[in-house]
Design a protein around this nucleic acid. Structure first.
Lengths: 341, 341
DNA sequence: CCGGGCGCTGTAATCGTTTCCAGGAAGCGC
DNA sequence: GCGCTTCCTGGAAACGATTACAGCGCCCGG
């Protein structure tokens, strides 16, 4: 807990003015002799420039904020990794803020408002729910914002999206090709952006296929909610479903558990697919077929958009998209009798 | 991207001096009339105080940094959650920095040095490896640091530890009580702090038990490394082991996979236990018996120590400890046919 | 020998806040 | 009416850095 040296002290010790000291340290015009003296003095004192003072003077903090709704979900961890990679490479520091639970949209508004204090030079945001208020607040934020997700058309904000509707369709088509004909869709809350998109994808996909389809909503994008909802699906009266398409990996894993609880063989009696292709997909048994939306890549792209916009705030807003990709694993294996486990 | 209003503008609009404006907004002495005028002006202009300027003047940023080695491990996510809870409640903002991969200790030193720039008012650190250099650098850091883990005695740093050696012993004793007698310890890198402690715990525990014990090291605290090492353990010549004690959940899950690859029934032929009791333990099948070190609680405690020290930097350094707790689940069920859960 | 240009330096202003200090206007008791 | 306290206010100095500007010495050509 030693005390910090200031530029004034360095200048004093080197016997020059603070202006010269600053110039010497920043590689601006200065005689070799001065540079040498100042360098030595700075080293002796262990001088490091103060971030707040520099930020105040320069009008830039060198920080970027990533706001995430639910740190518990590995998806966001992966996104964060992607963001961090790019952000660190550009010389920024990453600041992560958890905007509370999934239920509260007020939190993220608070965050946006607090950004006006100038904590960071840019913000990456991945909101679960998009309201008009949110869009307005983003527009009013004095620093560049990049959204991972989907905003209303013409929002004029840099965005990285993915076609998760198409992703769900990929899963449905895959299951259909494997001969599954009674497919249930296990969605998260329908009023969230991903919930709405994935439901649309499911509906569109089943519309032109000869399958018996049904849709169900879990209370949350969590494993517990998925397990509970899957129980309902699997114990409902009538002919049993032979496949569950879950809107995300956590829900899918909940479905795997429900199947196990009920003694249903996966993939023999029931196929299950997830979305996000998180690390969890390879951890469970049977390994989970899942649609990758490449969260890490989305994080990288978002960070790139952001750093580019910080450099040149006049750029036209850009919308990038990452295509979904189906990863087939054991949970949707073609034939029952392959019988792993 | 509207431009930001400054206190000067607010004061002008309210027709008072900036001193009065500042006082009015901060609830210091000011007449009701002034407060009213200033409030109104501030609202009109959408004024929010600038963080950098305030930080410069006050010498405090209102930020706390949490440095984590490996965001991929759910343990750290849980710790982060705990830290965030306390930190947010105290009015600080949390900044998370990933200090690269597990292999590089230089990173965390860089981070510590960069803290001297005054980015934050405090730092929570959970280092995987502790070197003399690290301890020295911590001592030289101008802001309070709290370490989650274990430092050399007398380091004089606030610390939150857990008795992970005892934790491993709990697992061993449990397995012994269930009748397991040929127990393998699946450790991560032995040169890490947790690796060393857990190995010690294992050695001590088996020393006074009638078991055949062996120790093995995986390259990393990851599932892939655990699977690979467990393969070696399970295919070694001689009488087969009937239990694997893994040094963490990821390794344990790797072992579950290896067992499955080899067609070994868990818990029938082989019991497996993990450490950390992460959310993954309940995701796998059979659910993993694991020793909880309550990462979230450790995060909370660390954050509390930190905020308290920030308030009063003269406090004597404190070392807190969280006791390990064994959570028995299916992967170590007593008898194959009991099949609980 | 003198003036212009060049290279380097120091003084001082500035970023947006907070806060010390001095001073003015009331209010009060006498 | 006078002195005192009380309350509020504005001016100005910080915090630690960057940087515009002016000034200094020196070299060089004419």
């Amino acid at each position: 807990m030693a005390h910090r040296a200031t530029l004034t002290q360095v200048a004093q010790r080197a016997g020059v003015s603070i202006a010269s000291a600053s110039r010497a340290l920043n590689g601006l015009v200065a005689s070799p002799a001065t540079v040498d003296k100042v360098r030595r003095a700075a080293d002796d004192l262990g001088y490091v420039p103060d971030a707040s003072a520099r930020a105040l003077k320069m009008g830039a903090t060198g920080q970027i904020t990533f706001a995430v709704d639910d740190i518990g979900n590995p998806v966001y961890v992966e996104m964060m990794t992607g963001v961090q990679e790019v952000v660190a490479a550009s010389g920024f520091r990453l600041q992560v803020t958890a905007t509370g639970g999934t239920r509260d949209v007020a939190d993220v508004l608070d965050l946006l408002r607090s950004m006006r204090r100038g904590y960071a030079d840019g913000l990456v945001l991945s909101p679960l729910r998009v309201t008009a208020e949110l869009v307005a607040e983003i527009a009013a934020t004095p620093i560049p914002v990049v959204v991972i997700g989907r905003l209303p058309d013409g929002a004029g904000v840099d965005t990285v999206m993915t076609d998760s509707a198409r992703g769900v369709a990929l899963a449905v088509e895959h299951l259909h090709a494997q001969g599954r004909r009674r497919i249930a869709f296990l969605n998260g809350p329908g009023d969230t952006t991903p919930g709405a998109a994935r439901r649309r994808g499911f509906d569109d996909a089943v519309a032109h296929l000869d399958v018996v389809a049904s849709t169900h909503e879990a209370a949350d994008f969590t494993m517990a909610a998925g397990r509970e909802a899957a129980h309902r699906i699997l114990t409902a009266a009538g002919r049993p479903v032979d496949a569950i398409v879950a809107a995300n990996d956590l829900l899918a894993i909940g479905a795997l558990h429900a199947a196990h609880d009920l003694g249903l063989d996966v993939p023999g009696r029931l196929a299950v697919t997830g979305v996000d292709d998180t690390s969890l997909a390879e951890i469970v048994h049977p390994p989970l077929t899942s649609v990758s939306l490449d969260s890490r890549r989305r994080g990288q792209l978002a960070a790139e958009l952001l750093t580019r916009r910080i450099e040149d705030p006049t750029r036209a807003p850009q919308v990038l998209s990452v295509p979904p990709l189906l990863h087939v694993r054991g949970s949707s294996a073609p034939t029952p009798q392959a019988g792993n486990r």
